[in-house]
């Protein structure tokens, strides 16, 4: 176990930001801290880096107490969301900063620093751009300078705060793939913070979901996606549709139709059922299930988006196969039934 976080709590001005969080990372693992804004994920990252002190709890790295060490002795590389590059230094000077900041006895020679900077520039694919100032680099390039600067101190742990937050969609996807490759090559234990579930599920070995400062669920992307521990996790990891239902003998009864429940089975009684937009069957005319009228059919895309207005009030936005959707037209009367639901 590389990093172990035990019962961390933190309050800012009487507002609890982190509530009793415990989690760990394995050596060489790529862990995502995922949550909506205000869930405390950046604060947790800053506590690990040493930029904040928790009110309670412990942070251990390879069984050593991290909290007792000041920031600069922790050897934790941190890449800030807005990079925090030194504007008056070139990319190369930025990268060399950590090595130059070492006490004289431990400082590498000038030649070693120069070689290491060249090596890192090439690692982050910025060969030949070492002489540029941050203002002369694009967002994606600045991001990689910040990463190289953090890697230059040969950290035991790498922390990334919303590493792709300030970049446009295309650059994001490219950098994401590249970062995953880089992680595989360096094998560095890495924790990154994100509010983008797609990013977390695609990149991370494991995902820790935070909600209002508490850990909601932790597991591999497959586990959290297919076995969400709560309605919050289910909703956060993808689009979700919910409607009222009645639980009877292990089946959810929705407008007269019995729908099988996956996941844990709740007790009988009224409840809320959840499913994904692509988890519906639609049949024309009336029958057991939710009576609805088609509002719009959008066929542009790999699957079709069909909006229906429910007779009982409310609307449902579904994703249906194109061949099914082509048979529907606005104002058609249909019956909608989820194939399976989850109930918490």
């Amino acid at each position: 176990m590389a990093l172990k976080i035990e019962n961390i709590s933190k309050t800012f001005d009487a507002t609890p930001v982190l509530r009793d969080i415990s989690l760990f990372t394995e050596d060489g693992e790529f862990l995502a801290l995922l949550g909506p804004s205000g869930s405390g994920k950046t604060t947790l990252l800053r506590i690990i880096a040493g930029l904040e002190q928790p009110d309670a709890g412990a942070v251990r790295f390879r069984d050593k107490d991290l909290l007792a060490k000041p920031v600069r002795e922790r050897r934790i590389g941190l890449v800030f969301q807005h990079y925090a590059l030194f504007r008056h230094m070139t990319a190369a000077q930025n990268i060399a900063f950590g090595m130059n900041a070492k006490p004289r006895k431990l400082r590498p020679s000038r030649r070693e620093i120069r070689d290491k900077v060249a090596e890192l520039l090439s690692l982050v694919q910025l060969d030949g751009l070492g002489g540029r100032y941050p203002s002369q680099l694009s967002g994606g390039q600045r991001q990689r300078v910040a990463l190289a600067r953090a890697l230059a101190i040969e950290p035991d742990l790498l922390l990334l705060d919303e590493p792709f937050g300030a970049l446009d969609a295309k650059v994001r996807r490219e950098l994401r793939r590249w970062l995953r490759d880089l992680h595989e090559r360096t094998g560095l234990t890495t924790i990154f913070v994100t509010h983008d579930q797609e990013e977390a599920l695609e990149l991370a070995d494991r995902v820790a979901l935070l909600r209002e400062g508490a850990l909601e669920q932790m597991g591999t992307p497959e586990e959290v996606y297919h076995e969400p521990a709560s309605a919050f996790v289910f909703d956060f990891l993808g689009d979700s549709v919910s409607f009222p239902c009645e639980i009877k003998g292990g089946v959810a009864v929705i407008a007269g139709a019995g729908v099988p429940i996956i996941g844990p089975h709740p007790n009988d009684g009224a409840a809320t059922a959840y499913t994904r937009p692509n988890g519906f069957d639609v049949s024309p005319g009336d029958g057991p299930g939710l009576a609805a009228r088609v509002r719009s059919v959008l066929l542009a895309g790999p699957d079709a988006r069909v909006d229906c207005v429910l007779d009982g009030g409310g609307a449902i936005e579904m994703r249906l196969p194109l061949d099914v959707a082509r048979k529907l037209a606005p104002r058609d009367r249909v019956t909608v039934t989820p194939r399976t639901v989850r109930v918490w």
Binding site: A49, R72, A84, F97
Partner: peptide, 10 residues
Amino acid sequence: VEEAAATLGA
């Protein structure tokens, strides 16, 4: 920026 310098060991 100062925090970044601190994490880099300065």
